[in-house]
């Protein structure tokens, strides 16, 4: 089961988020968004300290699993799923290379810096992401 997807830019700004199977627990979205960033940020820093230039891939609790991918340009992608889900880092990499770069970065009308937190607002990206995530094994 895939719950949600989050994307953060190099300025720690959440530039995209999307829910599929909403769990009752997240009411305050803004708060959740900051907490996710905080935990991902610290975990990734610990991992880098412990072994050179490494990044963590996922962590899980009894209720959910958080998958993480970061590009060398510090774009961070997070997918939250149920704990049974197998590693989705590859899927996140595909979202970065196949969807974000193709539809957002290569689209001159789509900003890549989001100074006032407008975020990514692009139909092709929305639709591509939705159909890609729905096609992943273990979506429903």
């Amino acid at each position: 089961m895939i719950y949600s997807f989050w994307m953060y830019d190099r300025h720690c700004e959440c530039i995209y988020s999307r829910d599929w199977h909403r769990s009752a627990a997240h009411e305050d979205k803004e708060d959740l968004q900051k907490l996710i960033y905080g935990s991902v940020f610290s975990l990734r820093n610990i991992t880098r300290k412990l072994s050179d230039d490494d990044a963590f891939l996922s962590f899980q609790t009894s209720k959910y699993k958080l998958h993480f991918f970061e590009s060398p340009s510090n774009l961070k992608l997070v997918l939250i799923t149920d704990p049974m889900m197998s590693d989705a880092c590859n899927a996140l990499r595909q979202i970065y290379a196949g969807l974000y770069v193709e539809y957002v970065v290569k689209n001159p009308l789509s900003p890549i810096e989001h100074p006032r937190g407008t975020g990514v607002d692009n139909d092709l990206f929305n639709m591509g992401l939705d159909s890609f995530v729905r096609s992943l094994q273990g979506f429903a």
Binding site: D53, S71, P72, A97, V101
Partner: peptide, 18 residues
């Protein structure tokens, strides 16, 4: 350049330079 680098990273999968 801000945009080209993403295409390069996406297509090559190069890791961070040491």
């Amino acid at each position: 350049g801000l945009r080209l680098i993403e295409e390069l990273l996406a297509k090559t999968g190069l890791p961070r330079c040491q």
